[in-house]
Structure formats: structure tokens, C-alpha cells
Design a protein around this nucleic acid. Structure first.
Lengths: 342, 342
DNA sequence: AATTAGCAGTCGGCGGCGCAGAGTGCTAAT
DNA sequence: ATTAGCACTCTGCGCCGCCGACTGCTAATT
């Protein structure tokens, strides 16, 4: 893709830019790596790298800034990940385990540890219950006209709100009904239980049109409610310390996104087959994030992904450090959760 | 305190300033309220109000801006709270109750409803476990040299980290020990269990100096850990829309404070004997908050305060609206929680 | 004594100007 | 292919001066 010298120059520019936040001049490259050539040669190479789309100039008489493409290439091909020292590992582990009382706290602890370690906001998106597997449905009769429903999935129980039925129904029928529905839908993920499927199944089981409609709508509503994921953000304000976010116009949409759990969860979807990954600037689906990079890793128990843990920083990020830290914490979180559920 | 005309002028200035975010000129006052006097007279009154400490001038040839003292006087004596319409009440109620599955979610729902309603960040600080009442302590032997502790309070159980003891201890002695400590400290709030008290109690119970020291330190650490309250912040980014926070230097310390649950909880301590209250600018203990006002109300079950719900905005806030909304939501949250715990 | 019209005085905001410095691209030589 | 040298470009910054917004004061009025 790039010859060795271009690669070294590109890496030097990225590293220098990450350090200084300022467009990198040919002289600065020279000072960073000794290639045995003069700044004029480097200028030549830089012009070529610009043509190839790896660099851009804010204005004619300025140095160069890496493009998203450059960061991508850097992360994929040039980067040498740092190794965490035993002390660092120890410290991070301790921070997680000091909160090992319950899963929720544990996860928040991991988020905090991560944010403090890298000085960027950290985000944890717990797996969208959409992907949970439906096990069964139970109705608890409260009254002849009133039942409460329970949806049981592979990872939790959702208690529905009591509902008033349009006609009386005896407990035995209710029981048959719930067994029928559970049998027909059990094993599907919540996402797979579409409206159409629901109509068919409930339609076959229900005794009357009115009851049918009530049930369908109730199940739909409850499923939707159960499908809202949880997102934890720690250290939002750390972003403000970054020079690229000096201006309110750039930081404002980002903080807004961080405020909206659902958008954020969307942007952090695990990449199938990968445990850790990086999303850079324009690779985000949302325009508000073009100035950011996300370094993420998924965690879970027994091979089952339970969520994603990530840090959000400027594109100009120390990936060589961010990656191992995120990876390490995700792994440790997984272990701690496994321990907890054992 | 102030004669009627000064009061009307002050109210007009505050309201106009809240609307425009700009220093208010004597002309602007005239346009807002007709007092049958000219702008020159108003200028006179404004000069007097400045001497009294209610107004200040950014510079000589500018209009006037209300001081914290003015806001305080306004909130205490001039303000007429808006009445929420039945539709608004209905809407807010619905937003809370749509999440009435579990307390944690319910509280988050209230925070979100609040932030969306007033377009300022909302904060909920659940009561500091400091105020929880200690019930008893239990040691679970894991090994001859290793025990795990459990602290039980009136509202929860805190599982301690397993600790390695310096010497072997048999289960019966452990049991006696925990019964002794529980008997001596039971009924006190966590805050009342001071270091000195702990030393006395543990000292009397422990068999050796080394064991004593280990235990004392362990209990101290666990108590401190248990005493960290939970804080939920919603809609942090809404603050950025406020003109006074156009500059990063002003917003940055505020967002940092919002990121630190413990500081925030400190600033939101309920005021004994009041259900709703306002904290204005310099009244905060922390200098980072001088540009802000907090409108807060406490919620709880059966007379027992369980936390504080608040919105954080610029001092220039529509208190006449913020107060009733916060009050209403706190009340409704209390009711929903009562319902849930019943 | 309170109010008022009129007016001089003050100060911030803003746009235009010019300079210094940084860094490039080009050229001609090696 | 590489390099020294140099002209050129562009930003950032400080400076200046004007405009306009308000005030505070004075002297007249009720």
C-alpha cells in the first residue's frame, strides 16, 4: 500500500499531531524520525501522501493533518500496541473488583476505571434486550377482568403492567393461552418477534377478537418496553479538555449524542467476530461524531456478548494505549461477571 | 425591605434579563411595566437598587444585571409560581409511570421527564447511605485465614471484599465477634459510626492487636464504600444551549462537577424542614457553581426522605415554572415509590 | 421633595489594517 | 532522486478609531 518510507513519515506525522494538536510541518517530521533525507524530500513525500488521501492541509501555508483514512491505516497496519505493565494491570483489576457486589455496580466501576485511566469519557452499552431470547410468557390473574403478564427471557424477567381485559377469563384458559404462546414463540429473540408473527400466534390462540386485540397490543407494548437497553456514560466532561473541542459548536452535538442512550448504543454495536475495534470519524453513521473516535471492546459471559465497553475521544487519540486498556478492562469485566454469575 | 415600586422595577429587570440575557436598560424596564414615570426616575431607582446590592453593572455605560441577592429576594418574596395545567400534570405523571417496574428505573424516568420538561439538566441524588441505619455485621468464613463480611442496614446489604486475616480464627469466635459488634453498633446510622467509636468497640471484642487492626481497617473501608450515594444526571448537554455558558471556561467546571457524583450529592443536601428549595450562585459551597442555580425538592416514602430531585440551570432561570415542576415530580415520584413498596 | 427633559460622557464591540512568522512549492543545481 | 535556497501565501494578532447604547448629572418643573 505504502512504501516503508511513506509509512514511517505517515506514522511520524500522526504521532506528532497527536502530541501537539497542530498541523505538522516537514521540519517536525525530520526532528521526529531520522530518515537520512532533508525536509525538502519529506515535503515531496507529504505532497504525495496528500494526493493519496492520507493528509490534508488546513490552508496553503500550513503543515499537514492526518485524514480519517490515515488514522484507519495507522490503526490497521502501522500501530504497535503498548503492553500494560503488571502494575497497571493490577491497578485496573483492583478498581473493578472493589465494586464486585452486583453486576450493575461492577459495570459502572469498569466505566469509571476506564475513564480515569485514559482521561476520555467512557461508555458502556449493555446488550440490547432486543437480542435476548424469549423463553416464556405467564399471566397472573389479579381478578376476573384483570391480569398481569410476565415475560421471561434468557437473561431476565420483565414484569408487565396489569391490564384490564374486555371480558372475563378463567385461570385455566389463561394458562393454556400462555403455554400456547410460549410454545410458539420460545427460542426466538425479542427482535424476531415481529408484529405479523405475533398476530398469527395470538390470533390462533385467543378466544375472541376483542381479547385477541387486547393481548396483541399488550404484548407489543411490553416487548417494546423490555427492549430498551441501558447505557452508562462516565466522565463526559473530560472531552472538554481536548483542544479540538475548544469550540462549543463542535462539542455540543457530541455531548448531545452522549446524552441519548439509544443513539449511542446504535453507534457502539459490536462488530461480529471481533472483540475489540476502532471507529474513526466519518466511519460513524452520525454526522455529529465526525470529530471523534471510539475504541471499543465487547464483554460477556460464556461466549455470549452482554455489552460493549468503549472510550470516546478525539480522532487524534493514542490508539496504541487506548486499545490495550479497553481490551484488558473488557476481558476483566467478563471474568468478574462470570465469577459473579457462578 | 423594598417599597412597592422598587419591587416592581426589580421584578421587571429580572424577568427581562431572564428573557433577553442582556443587561437591562432603564428604557427596557419602562417598556415592560408602566409605572407612570419616566426613564430618568427609573434610572434613579436603579441606582438605589445598585447601592442596596440588588443590581450590578458590567461596565459604566451598560444596563443592569440582577445579583444573587436579587434572585434570592425574587424567589422568596416577589415570585408568583405558575400553576401546572391538568394536561401538563397528566403528561408528567404518565412519563413517570411508564417505567414503574422497579425503583431504579422509576427514578431515572423521573429524571428524564424533568430534564425534558424544563430543558435543563436534571439531577437525582439518592439518599446518602451515610444516613442508613446499621443493623448488623456478619462474617462468612471462607477459609481459616479468610473471611468475607456482610453489612446489613435498614435499606440494603453491602457485601464486603474477602479479607485475609493475620491469624487463624475459628467460626465460633467469628460468630461471637460479629454478634458483639452488631449489638454495640446496631441502631446507629452509618455516619454515627465514627472511627473512635469503632476503635473502642472492636478493641473490646478482638482477641489480639493484629486482628483488631485488621478488623478496624476493614470495617472502616467497607463503611466508606457503602456510604457512596448514587446520583443520576440526565440531559447534561442541555446546559450548553444557555448563552451564559457560551464560553468553555464557564461550562467546563460545571460539567466536571456534574461528572462527580459525590460533589453533586454534597451540593444537593436536603434542607431540613423544606420540601422544595432554591440554591443560587454564590450560595453554593463550590466556586465552580457560581453561575448556576439549583431548584430542588426531596422525595421519599412515609415521611422518610429517600433522595433529592433537582434541575440545574443558569441563575437566570424561570423559577416560577421550575419550582412547580420540580415539586410536582418529586411528589409524584414519592407516590409511585410508595405504591411500589406496598 | 419628587420628577423630568436634555445632554455630555463613558465604554464595549467591531471591522479594517498591517505586520511578523511559519511553512509550503518551485527551481535549479548536484 | 535529492537538496539548498527562495519567493510566495496565509493566518494570527495587536492596534486603531468609530458607532451606538446607556448612564449620571444638571437645571427646570410640578
Amino acid at each position: 500500500m505504502l512504501d516503508a518510507r511513506k509509512g514511517r513519515i505517515l506514522a511520524a506525522i500522526i504521532q506528532e499531531y497527536i502530541r501537539s494538536t497542530e498541523p505538522v510541518a516537514s521540519d517536525a517530521v525530520l526532528r521526529r524520525v531520522d530518515l537520512g533525507v532533508s525536509s525538502a524530500t519529506i515535503r515531496h513525500e507529504m505532497a504525495t501522501l496528500e494526493e493519496l488521501g492520507f493528509l490534508s492541509q488546513p490552508h496553503t501555508s500550513a503543515g499537514r493533518v492526518p485524514t480519517d483514512r490515515a488514522y484507519r491505516f495507522y490503526v490497521d497496519s502501522l500501530l504497535a500496541e503498548e503492553r500494560l505493565t503488571p502494575e497497571e494491570r493490577q491497578r485496573l483489576r483492583r478498581q473493578i473488583h472493589s465494586l464486585a457486589e452486583e453486576a450493575e455496580r461492577l459495570i459502572e466501576g469498569a466505566a469509571r476505571a476506564l475513564a480515569e485511566e485514559v482521561h476520555y469519557p467512557s461508555v458502556i452499552a449493555m446488550v440490547r434486550p432486543q437480542e435476548q431470547v424469549f423463553r416464556h410468557l405467564r399471566f397472573i390473574p389479579r381478578d376476573v377482568h384483570r391480569v398481569q403478564g410476565l415475560i421471561v427471557t434468557d437473561t431476565g424477567v420483565f414484569e408487565g403492567q396489569p391490564v384490564d381485559l374486555p371480558e372475563a377469563i378463567d385461570p385455566e384458559s389463561l394458562d393454556r393461552l400462555s403455554r400456547w404462546i410460549s410454545g410458539a414463540l420460545g427460542g426466538l429473540t425479542l427482535a424476531e418477534i415481529t408484529r405479523e408473527r405475533l398476530e398469527v400466534v395470538v390470533g390462533e390462540a385467543a378466544y375472541s377478537d376483542r381479547l385477541f386485540n387486547y393481548l396483541r397490543r399488550w404484548i407489543e407494548r411490553e416487548l417494546r418496553r423490555a427492549a430498551t437497553g441501558r447505557v452508562v456514560v462516565e466522565g463526559m466532561s473530560l472531552l472538554l479538555a481536548q483542544p479540538e473541542f475548544r469550540h462549543l459548536e463542535t462539542i455540543s452535538p457530541i455531548l448531545s449524542t452522549l446524552d441519548h442512550a439509544d443513539m449511542l448504543a446504535e453507534l457502539m454495536r459490536p462488530i461480529p467476530g471481533r472483540t475489540a475495534w476502532v471507529t474513526i470519524g466519518s466511519e460513524f453513521a452520525s454526522a455529529s461524531m465526525v470529530e471523534c473516535s471510539l475504541v471499543a471492546a465487547s464483554y460477556g459471559v460464556e461466549g455470549r456478548t452482554m455489552g460493549t465497553l468503549a472510550i470516546l475521544g478525539p480522532r487524534r487519540m493514542r490508539y496504541e494505549r487506548a486499545l490495550p486498556v479497553v481490551r484488558f478492562l473488557a476481558q476483566n469485566l467478563s471474568e468478574a461477571l462470570t465469577h459473579l454469575s457462578a
